[in-house]
Nucleic acid binder design. Structure first.
Length: 574
RNA sequence: CGGGGCGUAGCGCAGUCUGGUUAGCGCGCCUGCCUUGGGAGCAGGAGGCCGGAGGUUCGAAUCCUCUCGCCCCGACCA
């Protein structure tokens, strides 16, 4: 393709609305333009990149035995009522009525539609397993879209759904998808980790998220430096080391702590570490109070707490001062665990603590030398807190690292949640009716492009991994008015094109500096320059965008060299 | 939805507090000359309902009211 004929509206200056690198660069390089909040047009280069990712996704999904189909975007409200999600999904589901006053919605995901399709068309275990996917525009009316393609309201997603007859079969399918996802993101040239994840509102029994590692990621993930263990913060566990030998239990001691409420102030005043204090928090779970006990320096992980209580995170919040007083009789800020009548949950860590400090249920007093089961009891002891970098890996005991990630893929083993809700069943080999065992598998295609840029850029622009670059080579004619140079450039362009190499020919009548700047901005992996050194020595130069290394070689050798470079970069993993 | 900020030419901004000629600047765009290895130079030019509506005033980009849109921070997610 010729640069002069393509719509590539590059910008010298960064639009003020863009905050993160991928958003700024996608705008500056002319890949996308915003239509309204969270809704973007993909220009030719943006679309080319999207198509590259899609192609890899298709190849790997097909290779793993999945089949592509395409489901409707507009979906009847009745189907969502049948699954129960019409009520549950919330305002993120964009709803509208058509001319016949039928309730409808734009598909944010397709569990209902696919399950409906399968229940009417698949009836026997002999037809299973089935694994179906589509690549399509999704719409989710996000509360706050942000960061360009990172969190749009309209975005391109690959969503896949599997149907198995047995648990073992479903687990095998899940494993196959896990492997396929590994291959997909590896082929995209991304540094990523698969992490254990909470199943959230989609529901199901277990799941993994695929995280592209980048400092600007919206998620915090925990990865082990010593083994393969990795998990989302919401799910991350840590070793619960066996309790040290129980020391002598000291007598409770009431001590005045004038005006000290916050953990840091209290422990400083008492001359102890926050690790020697237990704090008492009150939450409202479905509007009923529960107390949570935690070591002073630890933080509650809301998702874990919600799971321990069996409630949805939407129905879980910190109690306000009035609620604390009304339900415990103690003002906020003075509440300790002794004598509580509401349900009490304690974090695992408490089993290892002895002679710790707590609040005394009285203004300006704390108690020293408190002990679990001697001075107070709790109903539940489990993992309720955020893992920290001081914790040890639950799998190998190695040290843990907290890092940021961008969620580009998510796989779930759903089980029978939707098949039961929609009465989607088949007959097993005994002639008994069984619900399909399902899995679902998503990849944010447009987000993957943003994540790739987030992970691969420098001050001059994007640096695409070759497999997902919009073009593999950008060929610069540095002197379009020079006939010899133009003839040489065209010859090379033709040769590469015949070999199936994707070349963007910069034939614009611009000065070299502008072409260099644009080439860097677009992030195309190899830049080939035909100019002064061709006139002087018959040589062209090949510059690697990522490393900046430049290779000069005779025109006659350049084509073969480039074909070689591109093909080796495209070699699939292992 | 709560908190913060912003809407002036395609992009980046000044002007608004303290109302007063024809609303400016840089980049980009058009024409010509010139130039050609890291976003050149000169000359000429086009482009604005100052987000929208209402109000105050002799007079509003500027003050007031309402509204719409956008961005950032939080709870949600591919």
């Amino acid at each position: 393709m010729r640069f002069s004929q393509l719509l590539i509206p590059t910008l010298k200056e960064t639009p003020s609305e863009a905050e993160v690198a991928s958003h700024q660069l996608l705008l500056r390089a002319g890949f996308i333009r915003k239509l309204s909040s969270g809704i973007y047009s993909y220009l030719p280069l943006g679309l080319a990149t999207i198509r590259k990712v899609e192609r890899i996704v298709r190849e790997e999904m097909n290779r793993a035995g999945a089949q592509e189909l395409l489901l409707p975007m507009v979906q009847p409200g009745d189907l969502w009522k049948e699954s129960g999600r019409w009520e549950k999904y919330g305002p993120e589901l964009l709803r509208f009525t058509d001319r016949h006053a039928r309730e409808s919605c734009l598909g944010p995901t397709h569990e209902e539609v696919i399950t409906d399709l399968i229940r009417f068309n698949v009836h026997s275990y002999k037809e299973l397993p089935l694994n179906l996917y589509q690549i399509q525009t999704k719409f989710r009316d996000e509360i706050r879209p942000r960061f360009g393609l990172m969190r749009g309201r309209e975005f391109i997603m690959k969503d896949g759904y599997s149907f198995d007859a047995t648990e073992d079969g479903a687990d095998a399918t899940y494993k196959k998808m896990h492997e396929a996802y590994h291959r997909i993101f590896a082929r995209c040239g991304l540094a990523f980790r698969a992490v254990e994840a909470d199943t959230g509102t989609i529901g199901g029994s277990f799941s993994h998220e695929f995280m592209v590692l980048a400092d600007t990621g919206e998620d915090t993930i925990v990865i082990c430096k010593g083994c393969e263990y990795a998990a989302n913060m919401e799910k991350a566990r840590c070793q619960t080391p066996t309790a040290p030998a129980t020391p002598a239990l000291l007598a409770l001691e009431k001590i005045e702590t004038p005006g000290k409420k916050k953990v840091a102030a209290v422990t400083e005043f008492l001359g102890i570490s926050p690790k020697e204090l237990v704090k008492t928090l009150v939450y409202m779970a479905e509007d009923k109070p529960v107390a949570v006990l935690l070591r002073g320096d630890h933080e509650v992980q809301t998702v874990k707490l919600a799971n321990a209580l069996g409630v949805n995170t939407d129905n879980l919040r910190l109690a306000d001062d009035k609620e604390i007083f009304d339900t415990t009789g103690t003002p906020s800020g003075y509440l300790g665990p002794i004598g509580l009548t509401i349900p009490v949950l304690a974090d695992n860590e408490l089993t290892r603590m002895h002679n710790f400090a707590i609040r005394a249920n009285a203004k300006n007093f704390h108690l020293l030398n408190a002990n679990l089961n001697r001075d107070f009891t709790v109903q539940t002891i489990t993992d309720l807190r955020q893992v920290t970098s001081e914790d040890r890996c639950p799998a190998c005991g190695g040290s843990l690292e907290l890092t940021r990630g961008i969620e580009v893929g998510h796989i779930f083993k759903l089980g029978t949640k939707y098949s039961e809700a929609l009465k989607a069943t088949f007959l097993d080999n005994q002639g008994a009716e069984q619900p399909f065992i399902m899995g679902c598998y998503g990849i944010g295609v447009s987000r993957t492009v943003a994540a790739a840029i987030e992970q691969n850029h420098d001050k001059d622009g994007m640096i695409f991994p070759l497999p997902i670059a919009p073009f593999q080579i950008i060929l610069l004619n540095l002197s379009p008015k020079d006939e010899a140079i133009t003839a040489a450039t065209n010859e090379l362009y033709g040769q590469l094109g015949k070999s199936g190499i994707e070349v963007l020919l910069d034939d614009r009548d611009e000065r070299p500096g502008s072409k260099f700047k644009d080439a860097d901005l677009l992030g195309i992996p190899y830049r080939v320059m035909v100019g002064k050194s061709f006139s002087e020595k018959g040589e062209v130069e090949i510059r690697d965008r990522a490393t900046g290394t430049t290779l000069s070689l005779p025109l006659a050798e350049a084509g073969a060299k480039l074909i070689n470079l591109v093909r080796s970069a495209l070699a699939p993993p292992e």
